[in-house]
């Protein structure tokens, strides 16, 4: 009867306001104030983890005070992203991995730079490279870079 329309196009735009909660807020405030990474310690098993999570093993709260941890550690796993798509943190190619900071039991995700991507290895030691001006944001650490 009529040439049918084959598509209905629409862009769905939903703005959000995400609450960080007390621990994650402190994590970022301390990052800005002290230029250090502060993690949370489980009151039960005493393991130290990124303060956005609760200890999955113990189901116990984190201690009230966050503890400072070294801003260097081991690259547990990594990938070099070549495929472009929206919402990426950087334009491909970029390297991104999970870092186990010394003395901690959870991982910190971050970008890896100042390295030839062909040289990346699981088990490399990496260290945070901080921004000049700190704002209390995860990208106050620009990226992690390999160290000997």
């Amino acid at each position: 009867m009529f040439e049918p329309a084959s598509r209905v196009m629409h862009t769905w735009y939903v703005p959000y306001k995400w609450s960080f909660g007390q621990r994650a807020t402190e994590f970022l405030e301390l990052m800005k104030k002290e230029q250090k990474i502060f993690f949370g310690r489980c009151t039960s098993c005493k393991k130290v983890m990124i303060p956005t999570a609760i200890c999955g093993k113990c189901f116990a709260p984190l201690e009230d005070e966050l503890v400072p941890v070294k801003d260097e550690g081991v690259l547990e796993c990594f990938t070099v992203v070549y495929l472009p798509f929206p919402t990426q943190p950087a334009a491909p190619p970029y390297a991104y991995g999970y870092i186990r900071l010394d003395g901690t039991s959870s991982i910190m995700p971050h970008i890896i730079e100042e390295v030839d991507y062909d040289d990346l290895r699981v088990g490399m030691r990496v260290k945070a490279v901080w921004r000049e001006e700190l704002e209390g944001d995860i990208y106050d650490i620009k990226y992690f870079k390999p160290i000997d």
């Binding site: 049918p4 939903v14 995400w18 929206p86």
Partner: peptide, 24 residues
């Protein structure tokens, strides 16, 4: 505590199918 403002923006191309397509 800190609030971050962000959004989720997704483009869609919905298939009406032949019946609704004819109406459109």
């Amino acid at each position: 505590t800190k609030i971050s403002n962000w959004d989720i923006t997704v483009p869609y191309q919905w298939t009406p199918g032949p019946v609704l397509g004819t109406f459109l």
